[in-house]
Write a protein that binds this DNA or RNA. Sequence first.
DNA 1: CATGAATGAGTCTTCATTCAT
DNA 2: TATGAATGAAGACTCATTCAT
Lengths: 217, 217, 217, 217
Amino acid sequence: MNLGKVQQAAVSLFAARGFAATGIRDLGAAAGINSATLYHYVGSKEDLLVSIMRDCLNEMIRSGSEALRGSAEPAIQLAFLVSSHVGLTGTNQLTARVAEYEMRALSEANRPAMQELRDEYEALFTQVLERGVRVGAFNTDDLTMARLALMEMGTGVAHWFRQDGRLRLEEVQQYFVNMAYRILAVDSTALDGVDFVVAPRRLDSEPDPVQVRANAS
Amino acid sequence: MNLGKVQQAAVSLFAARGFAATGIRDLGAAAGINSATLYHYVGSKEDLLVSIMRDCLNEMIRSGSEALRGSAEPAIQLAFLVSSHVGLTGTNQLTARVAEYEMRALSEANRPAMQELRDEYEALFTQVLERGVRVGAFNTDDLTMARLALMEMGTGVAHWFRQDGRLRLEEVQQYFVNMAYRILAVDSTALDGVDFVVAPRRLDSEPDPVQVRANAS
Amino acid sequence: MNLGKVQQAAVSLFAARGFAATGIRDLGAAAGINSATLYHYVGSKEDLLVSIMRDCLNEMIRSGSEALRGSAEPAIQLAFLVSSHVGLTGTNQLTARVAEYEMRALSEANRPAMQELRDEYEALFTQVLERGVRVGAFNTDDLTMARLALMEMGTGVAHWFRQDGRLRLEEVQQYFVNMAYRILAVDSTALDGVDFVVAPRRLDSEPDPVQVRANAS
Amino acid sequence: MNLGKVQQAAVSLFAARGFAATGIRDLGAAAGINSATLYHYVGSKEDLLVSIMRDCLNEMIRSGSEALRGSAEPAIQLAFLVSSHVGLTGTNQLTARVAEYEMRALSEANRPAMQELRDEYEALFTQVLERGVRVGAFNTDDLTMARLALMEMGTGVAHWFRQDGRLRLEEVQQYFVNMAYRILAVDSTALDGVDFVVAPRRLDSEPDPVQVRANAS
DNA sequence: CATGAATGAGTCTTCATTCAT
DNA sequence: TATGAATGAAGACTCATTCAT
């Protein structure tokens, strides 16, 4: 037993039922320990959520920042960034979903810090898009809406992707980069020879993928 | 006092905190009545959620179906459908968010019926896309992913749109149709002279829009 | 059911077992209600204690202040004050014991306010003794120790007095005034014709006297 | 580490917060050991309390009995007894407070034995007083009340005395003997040449005196 | 139409204690 | 001698719901 195992159990339940609807006893049962024992690994139910969210957001920021460092060209940066986003989201589906949904479950003591991480991550997208528009690499009527649509779309992968489904994650990454290019009217030949399909890191908090139903069905 | 008022109060809280984290006393307080009085309007807390979700999904299906009846051409149908989706979502932000998020809060007694409505709605998109691809109106590598991305993107409007923000809802509808066309490589001149910006209906359950911060900022 | 009844039940248990050792379920049981119902009358377990202590200390201050107004002579004032102290303590034994013992059970949020009331009450004794020594009415080697001994002695009545015992409360009041006079070397003839045996008020929080064993045995 | 150290830590906390409000982990922390280690020195939390109380009461009985053996005259015996009582109480303040307050915390398995020790100790006072009245050495309207007041007064020393305060313990002993003499109308010249200020023994369980604020202020 | 009072089952968390190491 | 991990029972408190008024 260790914190990772507890996080995995928590993510499974939080993703399925939501933080508020998940009892501490449920968490214990899912982790295979008594609910009291859980407090040896975790300060409180909320601390557990915070540790999950922080790890997730930190990795997203780290991976996203790295993506931007891969090139100076906005179009290439965008491809890496979207690929990273989709990759991480697809690999850590449940964790990503929890990190997205449960911001509201945080108390005032913890929400600001987590929101700041989220904002930092979103800023990476804003940054790339703004520069791309400025240098004429992207074409769009509204930068902000493009960014929001792009991110929401990618985050949605957490909802439907299945590890054992029809599509491999690499294909999804590829396809989402294509969509991003179409939305921003970028010529995709710019990507020829660039291997932007970044391999995402699996978080400690992500449970072993449970194959529920075929993906992309 | 009537059911609508109660639904509005409920939607406000469910959207902000989630169903599970919202107490029956909170609902009463938000509606300006005693929590016991609430039971004159509603059978149970879950019934209240069900009534909200059902009304929302029904209106989405109704409006979506109507959109499809506006034309026989897939491209036109898609424009109407996306416009309807974004319009309803932007007009009934909180209700839409609740309908999306809280499916998991339903008991086994109610979830199947609601899920069926949701499936029925999604089928409208599948239908249009499939026919469009079949007749060569749309171009995409993967129909399913396109549909998922499209819907997620549109649903995302519930998260960020602000009634009093920089953008009018009509502009958002317009822009999202454009994005859909780009994603599916449709020539947007096909829309010349077509007024696809459908005026969405405001649901009884949608609270008066609280203007928090500027939208799409 | 009302707050008084709940306070009585609480005082019974707090006096017998202590605040910390008394469970909320015990309180409910003693009051004849479900433990959850208890929260209709009381904000929290600590609030309950605070309300008991405050009422008690306020009455002690009120009665003690009144005692001082009965005369300008320190010796007479002392008699009234001791009589009031012993009378209240004997009439509200359990409440007085709780007010004395459980100061430490209060959180930092409530302790200062209660301690202030206690200090205010003790100041009445200090005041009388100091003036008495100054005008030569009292004789003692150490004013402070005399006050402490006097108060402790009187408070002790809460520990052993029995409503149905050998001694009537008036006798106890009389005797303690005598002891005070002896300790301070006051000629008790000064009290001839003065009826200093004040009738104490029974607090709402004081349970009906349970006759456990004969008093002063 | 030894039992004494553990007792000291326990007395510190029991005196400050009460037995019931003190956790076994707090005890460990205060003693500088893990809470599990504590069980190497002590059978249970209650056993720890019992050992403290027993040592304290035994020493009080021993010292009190010795006081009585110092003379055959009740007045002298009383002086020695009060001096012993005040001395022990002032030297072992916290331990004495715990021994006094926490009788109620004991289970039925242990309370009778401790109560018996307490009764035995109180009997020393009763014995002296009764004989003193019988032989005409003491004058009082009520023997029992005199005894209760005397003891309560002396026990009160535990509440206010400070090792580093204005008064030395010997002065307090002296003063309390004086008060006892006054209460019982004994001529204090009887004590001329008698050194009744007994030096009290410091119990193993008594923590090093923490000088909080000036005493007898 | 409305509500204060009531409750059993539930919440998260802490408890004293045990035991393998 | 010492402890981290473990747990069943209990802690205070909140829950959704009912009902007499």
